[in-house]
Design a protein around this nucleic acid. Structure first.
Lengths: 187, 187
DNA sequence: TCGCTCATGTAACGAGTGTTACATGAAACG
DNA sequence: CGTTTCATGTAACACTCGTTACATGAGCGA
């Protein structure tokens, strides 16, 4: 609808990428994006409505951006490595940080934040599972892959040590490949 | 020092385990633990001081509790499985959740929260590294192990799916063992 | 008993919160 | 032109926030 609304969402998302979600307050946000708390309430109904709209937009951007990146990498690209490359890119780190923040806030206040990530986990597991191909333990393997990326991203964002976390990811891919080939040669 | 202070810390930690750290505010906390905001400031100097004291106590409990659990498991116990068993125990989940919350909040406000986890990551990596024994890529392997546990804990806390996350952890241990034995047989 | 220290209660301060009532400007439509 | 609708500004409301000033009580040594 209203393009003014869209502009506000746009700017709010950028603000969230910089400042995070935890202590969000209308007046500082409004001041920094050149509007007023009055208008934010007017266009989004409430603070809750604003956050919901912004998180939807963030998820949309997140998915679209990664989909593009993955598609550009070619048909037989490695999902995990693709995601890692995408997520560690400086321009995407803000989104990743926000997703983690929402995830962790949701742990303490499920009723409030649960909807922002309800099916997120299942979604990724399925994507990875189909990418890995069928096997007896593909669900566990997909869960493991997702956990590795999550854990390494957390470590990377916390320490900034790209070399060590990158090595760890490569090691994981190697031992997964070993594992797959051994299973394959058994038959 | 003052035992009253210790009692307040004790109760504050329990409160944080239930309510999380994000929106902590003195008056609700004080009301629930049977004191007043006035007294919290009196005993801890400021809200910051209270949080710092509580987080220290949480870290202390965390380390002590796990150290006991690990020691009780015997000399050749598996650190990763030990930690997983300990962390997924209902009475410890609150601590784990709090550590994750602090970690993620620190990502958005490093100057404020950095001290709570400064050396935490390095500490765990070293513990795991010595437990794995020396090898060429032991640092990367330790980083990977920690990431797996972190990622799976996040997934477990988010979904509550103990079976799937447990399977994923077992799978990881298997392929790590495979990897180790293959490396071993090479020499 | 006189102070002295520690612990606590009451009440307030100034600032910041989300939200709303009211007025107004502009623009669109009849 | 008149009216209606949308967007916006100003100012306030009722509240919560961390923090503090002031008073008071309890225990204790001299």
């Amino acid at each position: 609808m209203s393009e003014r609304r869209d502009v506000l969402i746009e700017k709010t998302v950028d603000y969230l990428k910089r400042r995070g979600l935890a202590g969000l307050s209308l007046r500082p946000l409004a001041a920094e994006i050149g509007t007023s708390a009055r208008l934010l309430i007017f266009h989004f109904g409430s603070r809750e409505g604003l956050i919901e709209a912004a998180m939807c937009e963030i998820r949309r951007r997140f998915q679209n951006s990664f989909k593009h990146h993955y598609a550009a990498a070619g048909r037989n690209a490695n999902v995990i490595q693709s995601f890692w490359n995408w997520a560690t890119h400086p321009s995407n780190l803000g989104y990743v940080r926000l997703m983690f923040e929402a995830q962790v806030l949701a742990l303490q206040d499920p009723k409030h934040y649960a909807r922002y990530l309800k099916s997120t986990s299942d979604g990724w597991v399925k994507v990875i599972e189909t990418s890995l191909g069928p096997s007896k333990d593909s669900r566990a393997a997909a869960t493991l892959c997702m956990a590795v990326v999550d854990g390494l991203m957390l470590e990377y964002m916390g320490t900034g040590d790209a070399r060590r976390t990158g090595k760890a990811l490569r090691l994981f891919q190697d031992i997964m490949a070993e594992h797959a080939s051994r299973k394959g040669s058994k038959r």
